[in-house]
Design a protein around this nucleic acid. Structure first.
Lengths: 322, 322
DNA sequence: CGTCGGCCACAACCAACGGTTGTGCCCGTA
DNA sequence: TACGGGCACAACCGTTGGTTGTGGCCGACG
């Protein structure tokens, strides 16, 4: 199916006749006739009844029309998503189903008129380069990578600290605990097949392992969270970490347990990064939204790697012109 | 833009290489390469970075991908809307922005998994023929036309009585009234440009006029409800009728007034019509939903035309197998 | 370090699609 | 009955989009 054909159908439905639609689309009446005939042949139904003074929709045509319009709207948005100049706000995040994803969902609900696109880049280095090149407008990441300060033209603000929880199956030794301390985790096998070496996520867990002597295995291919949850549910000796705000799509009766971790609570720090000079109007809206809704984070009793920038205490609204 | 190209893009993005996508789509690798190149040329951006062992998405490609998938989903639904056999439930209603529209919105919210299509046929005769031919599955109409019983294979049940209200501009003589009686309306000009002669809606107002001596003008072309509301708001001598549940999309400050009508209250009776033997599973769901949510209508103090079937007192769930 | 293998792009060729012009038929209307 | 508006069919033709054949690039491996 060709979108030009769909556009022709909608134009003919609006005009009530092929002739006028043809003029509107700057083609001949015969071309419109052939396009509609081809569409009808493809769909296997008649869309118009041809009359002496035009063409009016059949019932099938009436049913098809809203879908055709929707198709054109979606196509419009698809093209807009890669239009240079005024494209939708493009935000990178470390993964779906993290706290950043929840933040963006709430932002979208608060501002449904703002078009959004989400991408997931490899690591914070790639994200910084993309921000500097203008390929993306903002990124939710843990800043910064060990030993490197942020570039001068990148700004950042801590927006959310997401506590990590232990996820176990029902037969796991810790399954009954209401909470566990980090010290209790030593000796237990923790499996995180999603970790890609070289990313700041890997660096985070490397630090966690080094500081508390945990056993984290990143071995094996990552078959997706379904397979991970499947294995965790069935394997008493395995557990995994998961963000507190991660939403699981999982039948409740599989008996998976989410157990808070304490002493200290490892938290994953999400910061918003953006280019100092990015003029996208929706970026200011996003920053204002995050400033208005972000809870004040309480660092007491929590742990983050030493390389996480701790000095982000300036008000989030700095530099937002109002 | 061609949907086959979009499908190719999605397949290549999934596979991570053109070769495999080509095999999946049963074309050559060169065809995929040319399609992607054409898409990139049309959009003006690069979607893939070609590597030695495949092709991976650029950031633009990542942003475009969800839109591409959405496009394919919508196209799928569009085709399904006219598929013979198992197509979405197709419901006819007298007009949008009536109570029937609200009923269907609530039904959709209660059963979002059920695909729906709405059409608006000319009159109840056309609707009955469409029900009998299977072109539509159900219809919200006032039954029946004067002097004719419903066909034997059509079933119906009254689902909602919608009271009519008077809509006036702020300068209208009745604008300040909290309610008006039908008798008070005599002598006032009531304008209803949307009425099409020959429909059961026209029959309804004809009866209303005949019984209470009102003045209803259906003259002039119907330029849509925007133009109607515009005129009503600015013309002190004009008013119009409007369903109680009609939602107006209108700036609040134009001072339009909705005034209940009493002694008696004209109500427009919406019945659901369907074919006795229609096997569409969603039809049973719709009937059950309407039975569960429909308020018991109270005929006291209301008016309907004499030809409206008053005997629809059987339980709405009659004949629904559970 | 050279070779091999996998993958993509370019070129040449060809069928098929989609456009145009010309024309005929139908139907409501004067 | 003649006219006019509107759609469909036929013939023609350029462009698009497919195929096969081939070459270049790059990572892997001996």
């Amino acid at each position: 199916m060709d979108l030009e054909t769909v556009r022709t159908f909608a134009a003919a439905a609006d005009a009530g006749q092929f002739q006028e639609a043809a003029a509107e689309l700057a083609v001949t009446q015969q071309a419109v006739s052939k396009r509609i005939a081809a569409l009808e042949r493809n769909l296997g139904v008649r869309l118009f009844t041809r009359t002496a003074r035009g063409a009016e929709l059949t019932i099938d045509g009436q049913a098809f029309l809203p879908h055709a319009r929707e198709l054109l709207r979606v196509a419009e948005r698809a093209v807009a998503s890669v239009r240079t100049g005024s494209r939708p706000l493009r935000v990178d995040m470390i993964a779906s189903r993290t706290a950043a994803s929840g933040l963006m969902r709430r932002f979208h609900r608060a501002h449904p008129e703002i078009e959004l696109d989400v991408v997931m880049l490899f690591d914070v280095e790639t994200a910084l380069a993309a921000i500097q090149s203008g390929a993306i407008d903002a990124s939710f990441r843990a800043v910064a990578v060990p030993g490197r300060p942020l570039p001068e033209d990148i700004e950042s603000v801590r927006v959310l600290d997401e506590p990590l929880q232990l996820l176990t199956g029902p037969a796991h030794a810790l399954a009954g605990a209401r909470s566990v301390t980090v010290a209790q985790l030593a000796g237990h096998r923790i499996w995180m097949p999603g970790i890609v070496p070289g990313t700041e996520w890997a660096a985070y867990y490397d630090d966690l392992v080094a500081e508390f002597g945990l056993t984290i295995e990143a071995t094996g291919p990552n078959f997706g969270s379904d397979a991970l949850l499947d294995t965790i549910a069935d394997t008493p000796a395995l557990a995994t970490f998961m963000g507190e705000q991660t939403r699981l799509v999982w039948p409740a009766d599989h008996g998976l347990r989410r157990i808070p971790v304490t002493d200290p609570t490892p938290v994953y720090p999400h910061s918003l990064l953006w280019h100092r000079d990015n003029p996208h109007p929706a970026l200011a809206t996003l920053r204002a939204h995050l400033a208005a809704t972000a809870p004040s984070h309480d660092a007491a009793g929590t742990w983050t790697p030493g390389w996480v920038i701790r000095s982000e205490v300036r008000p989030i609204l700095d530099g937002i012109e109002r």
